[in-house]
Design a binder for these strands. Sequence first.
DNA 1: AAAGCTTAGTTTGATGTCAAACTAAATTCT
DNA 2: AGAATTTAGTTTGACATCAAACTAAGCTTT
Lengths: 164, 164
Amino acid sequence: MHGTNGIGSRRRGRNGEAFGLSINFGPLGSWVGFNLRMAQEAAFQAFSRRSQEIGESPGRFATLTLIARNPGISQTVLSLANGRDKSSLTPVVEDLVRRGLVERRRMDSDRRTYSLNLTPAGKKVLTTLTRCARRHERNLDQVIGARDRKRFIQILKKIAAEIE
Amino acid sequence: MHGTNGIGSRRRGRNGEAFGLSINFGPLGSWVGFNLRMAQEAAFQAFSRRSQEIGESPGRFATLTLIARNPGISQTVLSLANGRDKSSLTPVVEDLVRRGLVERRRMDSDRRTYSLNLTPAGKKVLTTLTRCARRHERNLDQVIGARDRKRFIQILKKIAAEIE
DNA sequence: AAAGCTTAGTTTGATGTCAAACTAAATTCT
DNA sequence: AGAATTTAGTTTGACATCAAACTAAGCTTT
């Protein structure tokens, strides 16, 4: 605490941490919630820039990966896996289908359910996006350090799974 | 990697991690970006629920804290500290002023700039919110574990500051 | 001191998101 | 079998956010 936290000290980070002014963050500096948000935002922005360079929206990446890894997955399951509400998925899938990256057909067994699969074009786009994501990850790894990386991810998973 | 990651195993988490189905997360499971997003989302939802119980929006909390700790702060600096675009702050400040939690007056030295301060009512609300946030943090601490907490926050800060 | 540049904040338009209401299909109950 | 309930996906309405264009005030340069 008095851990004012070093942020106001001199950085040229992208979003919120650039200023020579010294800000008093009070308790925020030592709270997980706030730092989690700042880190997530920064990482997202970084990936966003990268993926826009190759003309794709960053949000499509997890969606395409999940479809690739779980062929025939339904929208509801996909939205759960992806941590978004199913209603958010509707326009995303629409867009992916429209652009010919995903194929979507009703299940025979249950005609409410859609079955999603990547098209060859979708696979190709995913390959490109994955390369891009790998560079991004390598970058994050450098910041985190190989020593802490595994533990760090473990904690993130634990938070996602267990927080009340 | 083969760390398919344990998520599909059995959880009742709030947002995206509840399902008995086993999903193949592919590389996502071991990537920082994805796990960061899932953790942030879960933590945010948890705090959101708590703060709504006391009738406040979760986003107001950091804003009020920063104003309290930096009396007379300007909107631009506040938005930087908070990691949001200055344009996002406009309606937030409007709302806080309207509800009598924040006082905002033009600076004498530079009449473009606003000078923000908490009103007594604002201080009171912040006290309540802070109590609520402390409970939330205690909860997070339990999940993270005292041993790793400090290092974990350090890494989050590092990501926020250094990621390209 | 007038012209041009910079800065603080607002407005506008696009996105992404959630939650609740809705539709249609499937299942369960009696 | 018919009614009631559940489930998959869509629609709608609210909100948060960003980025770019804008306005007004201040600063700089000549």
